[in-house]
Amino acid sequence: MIALIRCIKSDFYKLGHTSIPWIHLLIPLAGALIFLLYYHTTSKNSITDIEGYLEVLAIAFPLLIGLISGIVIEKEEQAGGFQVMLCTSKSKCTMYLSKLILLLLLGTFSIALAVGVFALGFHVLPYLFYLKAGVALIIGNIFLYILHVFISIQFGKGASTGLGVAGSLISALMLTGLGDYIWYFVPWAWSVRFCHRMFEKLNSPAFSAEIVLDIQKGLFVMLFAICIAFAISLFWFKKWEGRKSYE
């Protein structure tokens, strides 16, 4: 545990002189302020406006996850062709976990900032609702971070970014009728669908029990997938010896 904490601190220090911390600060802050300005000048402070903002946030994150994961792993590659990660055999999984936790912490900060600033400026619903929505966005992205760390290490930043673009498109598509019956099994749909179902529960109290069961089904599938993906990724990285170009 101490070694892991040291690795995370080291990774944060490495990123301190890059644009990545600023990206996680400025993009969510700018997004929240732009939506607040737009809503305060054109809308009637409706619940639909909040739903629209959170869904846009959920749709944008797959792309951001793909891009940021690719950049972080690319910097590790540029520092010596993954030699730091590969040569520390006693703590190989620790190095992998450090990168994953770093990305999850940065993503959590961005979501908290984006939702928190918007909640302060658009206090139509209780803060508890915004908190639940923020948690839904965070846990809905965990699988994507695991996936994109793998893609970035194995195939590079281009592949991770390309998958991120496709993921955002899939996420938007899952809001249509096409996603009604398959969203449980589509990782890019989890965040946006959890938020969507929360608003359906709010707007349709008569169907509350049915919606809660639907959310619980999605949560079960998602948590199961996260556990399996995490275990497989650890096993894979422990055996990984570098890309073919380095062998």
Rank of each mutant, 00 (worst) to 15 (best):
Y53P: 04
I101Y: 12
P28I: 02
N141R: 05
L104S: 06
T42Y: 07
L97C: 10
T176I: 09
G167F: 04
L106H: 05
S171L: 04
K157A: 10
T176N: 12
M1W: 02
L169H: 00
K157C: 02
G134Q: 01
G134F: 01
D214W: 11
G177E: 08
Y145E: 06
C93E: 15
I226F: 01
K217P: 00
S69W: 11
H196A: 13
E76P: 03
I73L: 15
A136C: 10
A189L: 10
T108Q: 12
L178E: 01
V192R: 04
R193A: 08
Y145D: 03
M174H: 05
L104P: 06
I50K: 01
A60V: 12
K14S: 13
L125S: 06
V115I: 11
K92W: 07
H17F: 10
L169N: 06
I182C: 14
V117K: 01
H123C: 04
H123D: 13
A112Q: 01
T94D: 15
T108H: 12
S19Q: 08
L175A: 02
G121I: 09
H196F: 14
F35Y: 08
L15R: 09
N203H: 08
W236P: 10
P187G: 06
V165Q: 05
L63Q: 06
I101H: 09
I151Q: 04
G167V: 05
E51L: 09
I146S: 03
L63W: 07
L15H: 10
S98Y: 10
G156F: 06
E210N: 15
K90H: 13
A112G: 00
L128C: 03
F235C: 08
A60G: 07
T18P: 07
C7A: 12
F220N: 09
F12G: 02
K44S: 15
S171Q: 04
I50R: 01
G66Q: 03
